[in-house]
Structures are given as structure tokens and as C-alpha cells.
Design a protein around this nucleic acid. Structure first.
Length: 259
DNA sequence: ATGGTAGCGGTGCTA
């Protein structure tokens, strides 16, 4: 089972490019972020025509997450528990039925800039809520994959120019510590199980020629429960997609699971 | 220190 996470930065602007990537990469499951669309406005037809089930948790204009799957989806749940007043669409879960069931989640973690400030407070509070939900999912002992745009640069090796990010919410120590607290529950960063070298990125800003200079950061992650890590057959980043016409500023990150 | 680009939606916000 191939599972990818991809911050698409607007599904209406990217539907054609996403279809081309699906045809080339043939993932079984795609975890999308920043669809920037309400559920009713999501262009489902090109994906359903390719055999994907489509489950969305959208919002008009901003945020929004979705799951595409060629395998059956069940027990879909929308929203991160822990704050009834939070109306931002950043979390969707489902169970995918491969040769064995896998619980999957598409998450769009808050950016948090400018920091300090209310947006950074929201980011850290959201990460504390995510830790609670991640712990509850671990307790089920089902193979679990938490994939998405984490808006966290875990280590200096995950940025081409780490000094430029020292004051940024993506790299502040409190953000990185909150990310590590989730790992310490028992999750593993799938990409780092397979690749220890620096210089692998998943995002290049549209501005200042970041792509041309390879000035990137690695912020899109697939976290695996122990039961999922035991099934890991491979992981990678589809960097070439950033060079396509009208690309997202993120590229797909993928894993292969023996499931 | 600033401004550089993109998507959504129809203005300014978010990133």
C-alpha cells in the first residue's frame, strides 16, 4: 500500500496537476492539505473517474484536508478533538482496508507565525491536542499513519538555511519540542527511518527564487505507530513535482507499507 | 529591513 501526503495549495487550481501526478505515481492513498475549498465545491469527478474514493473536511477559502483512496475507506472522522470552539478544518481520519486495516489521518498543523502572538499560541495548543489524540490512537494498537503538513522543521538538517528560520514558528524550540513529544509517545518519522542525510526538503517558497536555489525545508511528514513502522517497505519525496508547471509550493512525500 | 509569489474570491488574509 502506497500512502502519500501532499499539501496541494488550492485544489481548484491544482486538480489537473494532481490528476497527472496520480497517473504517474499511482498511490493507493493520498492525504491532502490546504484544499482551500468547501466540501460541496471540491472537484471530485477527476479523482472518482480514476477510481479514488474522496472524503473531505473542507472550509471556504483557507485550510481544508481530504483523503483520496483506491481502497475502501470506513469510520471517517472529521476534526481534531479537544476544543469545540475550534472551527478550522485541519484534521480528518479514516480506516483504509488493505490486506490489513490501517488507520490514517490527514492533518494540517497551524503555521503559527508571527511568533510570539495568538497564532503561535494556537499552534502550540493545537499540538497539545494532537498529542492527546495521537496517544489515544496508539492505544488501539492498529497500524496508524499520521500524515500531513506539520509546519515543523524537526532539525537543522531539515533546512537548507537553518539560520534564516531561527525566529520562525516552524523552527522555534517550543514547536520542535512539541513535535518531539508526539514522537516520544512511540511514533517514528517514516522518512528518517529510511534516510539520514541532510538536504531533503518538501517545501520551497514561491518567493525569492527558493526553488531555483534549492532553498527548501522538510515540513511534510508521515508519522508511523510501531505497528505501522513494522510494515514499512520504503519512503521518499517526489521532488521533481516542484519543477512542474504551476506547482504547489509543497511536493508529495510517500511511504510503501506491507499492508 | 524589505520585498519577493501564489490561491481564494472578489478585499485583504494567509502562507
Amino acid at each position: 500500500m502506497r500512502i502519500a501526503t501532499y499539501n496541494i495549495n488550492g485544489i481548484k487550481a491544482r486538480a489537473e496537476a494532481l490528476g497527472a501526478w496520480l497517473d504517474a505515481a499511482t498511490p493507493d492513498v493520498v492525504l491532502l492539505q490546504e484544499i482551500k475549498s468547501a466540501d460541496a465545491a471540491f472537484p471530485r469527478a477527476p479523482f472518482e473517474a480514476r477510481g479514488y474514493a474522496v472524503e473531505t473536511h473542507g472550509q471556504k477559502g483557507f485550510n481544508g484536508v481530504a483523503i483520496l483512496s483506491k481502497l475502501p475507506l470506513a469510520d471517517v472522522a472529521r476534526g481534531l478533538p479537544g476544543d469545540d470552539a475550534d472551527d478550522q478544518a485541519r484534521w480528518i481520519e479514516a480506516t483504509v482496508s488493505g490486506r490489513r486495516p490501517v488507520r490514517i489521518c490527514s492533518l494540517y498543523l497551524p503555521n503559527g507565525n508571527p511568533a510570539p502572538g495568538p497564532k503561535y499560541d494556537y499552534k502550540l495548543a493545537w499540538m497539545a491536542r494532537m498529542k492527546a489524540r495521537a496517544a489515544a490512537m496508539l492505544a488501539t494498537e492498529m497500524p496508524t499513519v499520521l500524515g500531513g503538513d506539520y509546519n515543523v522543521i524537526p532539525q537543522p538538517e531539515d533546512a537548507a538555511r537553518p539560520q534564516d528560520w531561527r525566529e520562525d514558528a516552524l523552527f522555534l524550540l517550543d514547536s520542535r519540542a512539541a513535535f518531539r513529544r508526539i514522537l516520544h509517545l512511540g511514533y517514528a518519522d517514516a522518512f528518517r527511518l529510511r534516510e539520514s542525510a541532510p538536504g531533503h526538503y518538501s517545501f520551497w517558497d514561491y518567493q525569492a527564487g527558493a526553488w531555483q536555489r534549492d532553498n527548501g525545508i522538510r515540513i511534510d511528514h508521515l508519522l508511523l505507530s510501531p505497528q505501522a513502522a513494522d510494515l514499512l517497505d520504503g519512503a521518499g519525496i517526489d521532488k521533481a513535482v516542484r519543477g512542474w508547471e504551476k506547482p504547489s509550493d509543497h511536493v508529495p512525500v510517500w511511504i510503501d507499507l506491507d499492508a
